[in-house]
Simulated scan of single mutants.
Amino acid sequence: MPFNKLQAQIQKTLLNTDEEVTQRLHQVCVLLKETVSYYDWVGFYFANHESKTLHLKTYVGEETNHTVIPFGKGICGQVAVSNSNFVVPDVKAQDNYIACSISVKAEIVIPIIKNGKNIGQIDIDSKTADPFSSEDERFLEWICEKVASIL
């Protein structure tokens, strides 16, 4: 997996202060989707703790109606409550899954923690069954740490 090579590109993208933060996050989504063959939808959600909702900031992949997700609902909503990574090898086996596309088979969601608070998450859907490894998880945690540092 090209994660080592991607780290330098992602670091450079996130630190490019000539671009707005949302544009940098979008570029990270594009890099991930174009480089990792089984990353079919990549997006960043951010939390509104007052309304207890997640709001989609930017993404690449198939269009989605899930731009606002209540805490606790779906995989993303569960991560907003648990503050923990959630790797789903088979979305059909999850009772609390929000289907974005019938072709999605797996999902990984990693929280973005800043000053001890869950402020958002990266969400990745895959059309491949059980594609995510601990290497994906560590890499995405690293991205979330870098994202938190620019916010």
Rank of each mutant, 00 (worst) to 15 (best):
I119E: 02
Q27I: 02
E107N: 09
I10M: 10
I150A: 03
T35E: 12
V104M: 15
N48I: 08
N16I: 05
N85V: 15
K33W: 03
H49M: 07
A99Y: 01
K146P: 00
I113G: 03
Y45H: 06
V91M: 07
Y97M: 06
H55Y: 09
Q121R: 05
S133C: 07
V68F: 08
I150R: 02
V30S: 06
S134K: 12
Y59R: 12
V42I: 13
D90S: 12
E19S: 10
T13S: 09
V28N: 00
K117V: 14
N115K: 15
K114V: 08
N4C: 01
N16Y: 07
A106I: 04
V79W: 01
V81S: 04
E137Q: 14
C76I: 05
N4T: 06
C29L: 03
V30M: 05
D125R: 04
L31H: 07
I110V: 15
K52L: 14
D125V: 01
I124D: 01
D40F: 02
F44K: 03
A47V: 11
D136R: 10
E34M: 09
E50P: 02
T128D: 08
I119H: 02
L6G: 03
V87N: 14
T128K: 14
L151W: 13
K114F: 13
N85G: 02
Q9H: 05
F46N: 00
A47N: 15
V104N: 15
S133I: 04
N48K: 08
T67H: 11
N65V: 10
K92A: 14
F86D: 00
S51C: 02
P89W: 09
